[in-house]
């Protein structure tokens, strides 16, 4: 019988508390504790924005917000667009956004949030402005170890070459099909051989590449044609007598009149 504190290198470390399921079965199987580990830092390394990194976390965030927990977004890179979060089933009223410019304030905010232990997940983006010092990550990890929530840190790809005290690190690799591949580069367990493919389509979409002529036909003009109007948001142009004057003062309208 092996002492529970000892784990063999080949086996995944069995933590005391089970993790929170990522709702991707294949991925859960590869994570110690069968899910996102509570009370520890999870580093997600991404190349670019928009490869589906939030859709990847969405099932977790959805279940957290629906069970009444709050999600803290600390220094998000852009404005989180609430309707999109709602479309993913995440209750936008349970999202708390914290902006802190200085790294020291950011660290303080993370520590305070973790200390209060009142959130389901805390997501932060580091290295916007430059590489984060390893001490800072270490302090984050120390602070995270006292919480029951999930702490995710998004960092750029370049950070994979630097050592990090985070116990779980994974690369999010963009894919054309399926949408994302996840490669765990550090975990309490054996090295993972191959990345796991993750299918996370934009909700309700079947995307196919548009042909060139489709895009060109659809160019907006001051008088919209019938065929371009299949997703029309508002078309009240003809009912507004004052509109042409207003429009003519915009650069957009100049362009369209030239086009005509």
């Amino acid at each position: 019988m092996i002492h529970p504190a000892v784990w063999k290198g080949q086996a995944l470390h069995q933590t005391d508390c089970s993790g929170i399921s990522s709702s991707f079965r294949l991925l859960d199987r590869e994570l110690p504790g069968n899910g996102w580990p509570r009370g520890s830092l999870t580093e997600l390394l991404v190349h670019n924005l928009g490869i589906g990194e939030l859709r990847f976390l969405a099932p977790t965030l959805r279940s957290l917000t629906q069970s009444g927990k709050h999600v803290v977004l600390l220094t998000p890179p852009h404005t989180p667009y609430a309707p999109a979060f709602e479309a993913m089933g995440i209750d936008h009223r349970r999202i708390l956004i914290v902006q802190a410019d200085r790294p020291i304030d950011r660290l303080w905010a993370v520590e305070q949030s973790i200390k209060s232990n009142q959130f389901g997940a805390l997501i932060t983006w580091l290295d916007h402005t430059g590489p984060t010092r390893p001490e800072l990550i270490r302090r984050l990890q120390l602070a995270a170890s006292t919480t029951q929530g999930l702490v995710f840190v998004f960092r750029p790809f370049a950070a994979q070459d630097h050592p990090s005290p985070a116990p779980l690190r994974m690369l999010l690799l963009p894919r054309r099909y399926p949408d994302l591949a996840v490669q765990v580069i550090k975990r309490r367990g054996p090295v993972m051989s191959a990345p796991i493919d993750i299918a996370i389509p934009i909700p309700g979409s079947g995307l196919r590449p548009l042909q060139d002529h489709e895009a060109i036909i659809a160019a907006p003009t001051a008088a919209p044609t019938r065929q371009a109007a299949h997703h029309h948001a508002v078309d009240r142009m003809h009912h507004s007598p004052s509109l042409p004057d207003t429009l003519s003062s915009t650069p957009a309208a100049h362009g369209s009149s030239a086009h005509r």
């Binding site: 995307l207 001051a222 371009a228 142009m237 507004s240 004052s242 429009l247 369209s256």
Partner: peptide
């Protein structure tokens, strides 16, 4: 991949900058 989705709004606002086409 997908589109177009036309958004044409804001003409009811006073400022010309808010008109979106």
């Amino acid at each position: 991949l997908c589109g177009p989705e036309r958004i044409e709004a804001g003409w009811w606002d006073e400022t010309p900058d808010s008109v979106v086409q």
